[in-house]
Design a protein around this nucleic acid. Structure first.
Lengths: 232, 232
DNA sequence: TTGTTGGCTTGACAATTATCAATCGTGGGA
DNA sequence: TCCCACGATTGATAATTGTCAAGCCAACAA
């Protein structure tokens, strides 16, 4: 593994506090690989052989049942995914595929578990990470059960706006078909939802979003930190 | 705190491996309290002052937004809740209320965090617990996004049947109004969903459920371990 | 016993969301 | 340049789910 990747991973909160020798032990069995777009990295139900770290590009976590499919999350650099499966030595609950050309580090799960058992700092960092992940999913669950599709879209746009430094105009960061799946609706409905938000101060031009009436838009969306705040 | 409660808590996987002195430190600040039914124990948004342990009775975790409310989970003895908020020292994402008369142990969150920092075994046990919780929510999320209300009910009944030792007849363990909320539908729709499952081999008499045609019922429900298995 | 309460059910209707088919528009390859 | 592929959009329609109002029924208290 090249030193730069090594460094990037070490700087993650998950790995930054662990002992040098343990980090080295983890990296010994690890390797970095470049994947083209649209490659299925893992399949739900498979045993969790590797902890994955997205170094560049992006990855879609999704799941299928009975012929249907839904996107559950998008992983962007630099962060890990399927940590819980790795720790529990349990099968993946989600599949993963690259959305674009991506560089991914693979760390053998058994090494992660071994180091987890001997390195208290690593164990504590994992706790923080898992608690964060858990709370994110709870928020997603609340959003899905408490909001209509129009409200979910409106609040998603507000979150996206904040990520894009808060300006009235910003771009969607992935294709609408996938956004629809993430928000739990069909692509057709997403199209209509964009239309449905226009009376509340929204303009859409392709992938370009403009919130023309911030106050009115927020009055409709009713964002709530206990659902929409990414950090806490 | 009475010795018996002490013992029950110590036997939880979360606490069983930690050092005696650390467990004692945790218990020093803890106390047990009896609550009547329908008492709101915590409110979402409040700071997480205590880790809660349900010793007897049962607790409903729910959330509200914009006048709507939904049940997210039910906690039964003996287990903890709001562990993630306690660890992260972040506000509760869910409210909690007793469903019946309940005995609950309260452990100051700051003590939990303090011991977490010094006891590696405790930290590791927390990881296991959080990973478990995380995977449970992911499964709930998949169920909600991939299944219709009829399918959710059918699979819920199969899970309930397994919990009740697998016999064809068994009882619902909570009122239908709450079941509806847990499954993400209205009480009226739940009523119709029960009717809608009759052609697939279901009989309902009040709270008494009988699956008259197990094979046909499962053919409809299509249970999947990656959504419906409680353990993994 | 009678009356009341609260949960459950039912029917009629409305809103939301999905499905299907067709069309539009853009960007890349021949 | 033209054509194709693919995602996005639109319209028509159907399925699903929610809302509102009324009625049913069992538990409970007076």
């Amino acid at each position: 593994m090249p030193d730069s990747s090594f460094r990037e991973i070490r700087d993650l909160a998950l790995f930054s506090q662990m002992a040098d020798e343990n980090f080295s032990a983890l990296m010994r069995g690890a390797y970095v690989q470049n994947f083209p777009a649209q490659i299925e990295l893992i399949t739900e139900g498979d045993p969790s052989d590797f902890l994955h770290v997205v170094l560049s590009g992006s990855v879609d976590l999704f799941s299928a049942w009975n012929g249907r499919e839904t996107s559950l999350a998008t992983v962007r650099p630099i962060s890990t995914f399927i940590l819980a499966a790795t720790i529990k030595d349990a099968p993946y609950l989600m599949s993963a595929r690259t959305l674009e050309k991506s560089r991914i580090a693979l760390i053998p799960s058994q090494d992660v578990r071994a180091v987890f058992d001997i390195d208290g700092n690593f164990a504590r960092a994992i706790v923080t990470e898992l608690a964060q992940c858990y709370r994110s999913v709870i928020k997603a669950q609340k959003e899905l059960k408490l909001r209509t599709s129009l409200e979910r879209l409106a609040n998603y746009l507000l979150r996206q706006q904040r990520r894009a430094s808060g300006a009235a105009s910003f771009d969607l960061d992935f294709e609408k078909r996938r956004l629809a799946s993430v928000l739990g609706m069909t692509a057709e409905n997403l199209s209509r939802a964009f239309k449905g938000l226009q009376p509340y101060g929204l303009e859409v031009d392709g992938t370009r979003i403009t919130i023309t009436n911030q106050a009115e838009f927020e009055r409709f969306a009713k964002p709530n930190p206990l659902i929409d705040d990414g950090s806490t």
